[in-house]
Simulated scan of single mutants.
Amino acid sequence: MTKKKLLIVDDQVGIRILLLEVFATEGYETFQAPNGRIALDIVRTNRPDLVLLDMKIPGMDGLEILKQIKEYDKEIKVIMMTAYGELDMIKEATDLGALMHFTKPFDIDEMRLAVNMQLGQSSSSQFATGS
């Protein structure tokens, strides 16, 4: 079985390192990018299953990166991260296909659960999730 691929896009190195460590131990193949250009290169070369995408990135913002990811492949799942309560941007991100968003500082366990749920990994959960 191939490992699920996860791309972390954030201009803050501390957040990237934290998320890389958490998701590497969950068994994902993890990639990181500090900006949109590198993120989109990784999307094209490695096609991640899920992208954790910061809303506020210098240069190309999260919404623009999200648009380009979805233009490249609609199947790639995206979860937004934001330090700001910008409801209009969050709504736009949802309209563009983002699954959900986390406001920083986020609860790392909630983030882990959300990612595992989206990627169908039930490593730490014995419970079926239904809606």
Rank of each mutant, 00 (worst) to 15 (best):
V13G: 10
V13C: 12
I15Y: 07
I15S: 11
I15Q: 07
R16I: 06
I17C: 09
L18A: 13
L18P: 02
L18N: 06
L20K: 12
E21D: 15
F23D: 02
A24N: 13
A24M: 13
T25G: 06
E26W: 08
T30L: 01
F31E: 07
F31P: 02
F31Q: 04
Q32G: 10
A33Q: 01
A33C: 08
N35A: 10
R37G: 12
I38V: 14
A39Y: 04
A39D: 09
A39P: 03
L40R: 01
L40S: 07
D41F: 07
I42C: 07
V43K: 00
V43I: 06
N46W: 09
N46G: 08
L50T: 02
V51R: 02
V51S: 02
L52N: 00
L52H: 03
L53N: 01
M55P: 04
M55F: 05
M55V: 08
K56L: 15
K56D: 11
K56Q: 15
G59W: 00
M60L: 11
D61W: 03
G62E: 02
L63P: 02
L63F: 00
L63C: 05
L63Y: 01
E64A: 11
I65A: 02
I65E: 00
Q68D: 12
Q68H: 11
Q68W: 05
K70M: 08
E71K: 11
Y72H: 13
D73R: 02
E75P: 09
E75S: 14
K77N: 12
K77M: 10
V78H: 02
M81A: 12
G85D: 14
E86Q: 14
E86D: 15
M89H: 11
K91M: 13
A93C: 06
D95F: 06
L96Y: 07
L96C: 07
L96G: 05
G97E: 03
G97W: 01
G97D: 03
A98Y: 00
A98E: 00
A98D: 00
L99K: 09
L99Y: 06
M100N: 14
M100Q: 12
M100S: 12
H101E: 04
H101I: 03
H101D: 03
H101Q: 01
F102D: 07
T103L: 12
P105E: 09
F106A: 10
F106N: 09
D107G: 09
D107H: 04
D109Y: 14
D109W: 08
M111R: 05
R112E: 11
R112P: 05
V115T: 05
V115P: 00
Q118V: 10
L119Q: 04
L119R: 01
L119F: 03
L119G: 07
L119C: 06
G120M: 06
G120R: 04
G120V: 07
Q121H: 13
Q121G: 10
Q121N: 15
Q121C: 12
S123E: 14
S124N: 14
S124K: 12
S124Y: 13
S125H: 10
S125E: 11
S125G: 10
Q126E: 14
F127K: 15
T129K: 13
